[in-house]
Write a protein that binds this DNA or RNA. Structure first.
Lengths: 222, 222
DNA sequence: CGGTGCGTTGAACGCATTCAATTGTGGTGG
DNA sequence: CCACCACAATTGAATGCGTTCAACGCACCG
């Protein structure tokens, strides 16, 4: 395959930074994925747990006719692919050229069995995923297109490190499949927010967005 | 009265059936809620974990203008209200007259801290909630009204003990708020499925539904 | 009985989708 | 260097699915 491995140098505290165990260290390695390539597929055995070192990842489910629902975007620092079953429940793909660090799931499980700290961390991470999914159900079930896009921008603003500008790594179609809309509707909503004076476009591509009026966006988010 | 739920004669092993600890027993008590009453509210401190003994419960979030998204229905045997944060993330209400068993959350946490079996069970339960939410995101984001209602019927068919008939404890509005639709759309979809020969209505109220053609429903569910 | 809650059905509307055309950018090769 | 193509994004016009508004039927209950 295309991906090549690096030796694991020194990294934030803990194995996967957040997946901390008491007195153990795990062996990790790194992998590179080119834009658009699959990291793992839905229902494949969950052999590894991943952390984004650089780049961005989308996790999605497909219906038989190709309709796609992206459940989450994984940004730098995020851990993903953590399953307690044997199989992945999403397909994960690199949105752009991406480096991930990975650790064998079984080595985690083995340690967690006797290490309350790690076990606790696994629960906290799962809970945080659950919380995100619960909030997203409300968005998908009950919010309008404009509200969804506003919520999305605020989420990205919070999660992306960028100081003033939100530099989106994903295309309009990805945003649409995350928000349960079409790419045209996302585009129209962004244009409307631009007309409202809530945001400005910066780059040559339209993925760098300056949030001018966060209060207005927050009001739309309800 | 209205729909009657089968009393569950034997209770699963463990304190809250599924929330099993190694060598400990927790003190539990029971509580009755009349139809429509709140069990706990969103953002209230999460003092107890609950299990449905009889009846049914809805968990939902509200937007400021009253739009409601039901995240889950809790049926006989189900555990709900399990949070790892201090606060509940949903409001829980009795759909019909309901009896719940409850145990203090802190007593669980205390034991889980040193009991890997219980800790593991907490993780498994949280994961199962997460899995449900992930599937529901796909439904809310990408499925048509007919597909949603078909999926709902199959879910209830699987989870309700009833042999041949699905005896829904909830009204059309609850179903709608669970599926991200209006009650009229739910009603129309059910009528259409009836016309298709996929189901029959039984009781005087329209909540007892016999699934005649599960294959057809499953095909709609995609 | 009238009142209320629940469910169904019809008709009109509207938001988001679908279909389509256009623009701009980056990459590739002649 | 520019012609060419693929891809991303915007915008307009028409369509349609689900919503909104409204009327009605029915069971239950005081």
């Amino acid at each position: 395959m295309f991906a090549h491995v690096k030796a694991s140098p020194t990294y934030p505290p803990g194995i996967l930074g957040g997946l901390t165990a008491s007195h153990v260290t795990f062996s990790t390695s790194e992998f590179n994925y080119r834009k658009g390539t699959e990291i793992y597929g839905e229902k494949e055995p969950a052999e590894y747990v991943y952390q984004v070192v650089s780049g961005a990842v989308r996790s999605y489910k497909l219906l038989s006719d190709g309709r796609r629902q992206i459940g989450a975007f994984h940004l730098v620092g995020d851990i993903f692919g953590l399953e307690n079953d044997d199989a992945h429940r999403f397909t994960a793909e690199a949105i752009m050229d991406t480096t991930v660090r990975l650790v064998r799931r079984l080595s985690l499980e083995r340690v967690a069995h006797s290490d309350p700290v790690l076990a606790r961390n696994l629960l906290v991470m799962t809970t945080s995923n659950l919380q995100h999914a619960e909030d997203h159900m409300l968005l998908l079930g009950r919010k309008t297109a404009l509200e969804r896009v506003a919520a999305f921008l605020l989420e990205m603003d919070r999660r992306l490190t960028g100081v003033d500008v939100v530099a989106l790594p994903m295309c309009r179609r990805d945003i649409a499949d995350y928000l349960g809309l079409t790419l045209e509707t996302v585009s129209r909503a962004l244009s409307k927010l631009h007309a409202y004076g809530a945001l400005n476009f910066l780059g040559s591509n339209q993925r760098e967005i300056m949030l001018v009026d966060r209060d207005q966006l927050a009001r739309l988010d309800t």
